[in-house]
Amino acid sequence: MEKKSLKGYLYLLPALIIILVFTIYPLIKAVLMSFYEGYSIINGSFDAIGLGNYKELFSDKVFRKALTNTSIYVVFVVPCSILLSLLIAVLLNSKIRCKGMFQTLFFLPYVTSVIAIGIVWSWIFNSNYGLLNYVLSWFGIEAVPWLNSPDYALMALIIFSIWKSMAFDILIFLAGLQTISPDLYNAARVDATPKWRVFLKITVPGISPMIAYAFIMGMINAFKVYNEVFSLFKSSAGPANSAITVVYYIYDKFYNSADYGVASAAAVVLFVIILALTMIQRAVSDKKTA
């Protein structure tokens, strides 16, 4: 018995070592660094241990802005992406022509580099030549300075990200839809159940584990948004920093400002937020399934 479990651990060892070194150790180190004031990663020296970095962090307007922006971003991107994906997944799952082609089309954003897509979208959003403003002009809407105005920058980022994160959601919803027994739909048809009722009572409960999964993963990813900002605004955080996010802030503080302590403190704050929200979600979904 003992021997067997020892062997099990041995099998786990390579993965464990990698996780320890590349995940657990940096995590602990980041927490420690967040308490070192005036820390230098070059020689490991610091002036004092305390809450100085956190004080500086919360008094920094830019960080508060990053936190607000990230929250708005998560609140819009995650639910919108899930709703739209659900709709498209159901359509794709029905008997339509060129299903394979549509599936490929919708999945393309997932396998394409974010930087490449970001460049394309920065052209779509262009105030002079952009496709989006062209389409809007059909409805008599004047050219919107999507990427030039702080009022629209975050909105542009959210639109871009919803489209981008839909790819993954559609894929897992499609997989989920395949697992729902056709008998249920047949029974509903016999009863002449209205379509929206079928959707709410059969489809949604049938793939609820996938929805919960998409929600948690989507939220975690949305909190970590960085690449999208970087690529859409040509390696800046938007006009007058208006689209700065927490991870962008962390990166900027660490590599550009050499404020290692403050960057770590921001990372710890982000970690705590994500951890708390994930735990709440799990508690809620456990209750539901139980």
């Binding site: 702080p150 006009p239 007058a240 920093n241 900027d252 550009n256 400002s257 050499a258 404020d259």
Partner: peptide, 20 residues
């Protein structure tokens, strides 16, 4: 000097904001 990068990016953002 220590902090000159932060000044530069703060001034960039502030100037943009003021002009807008």
């Amino acid at each position: 000097f220590d902090g000159s990068y932060d000044i530069q990016s703060a001034v960039n953002a502030k100037l943009e904001e003021l002009i807008l």
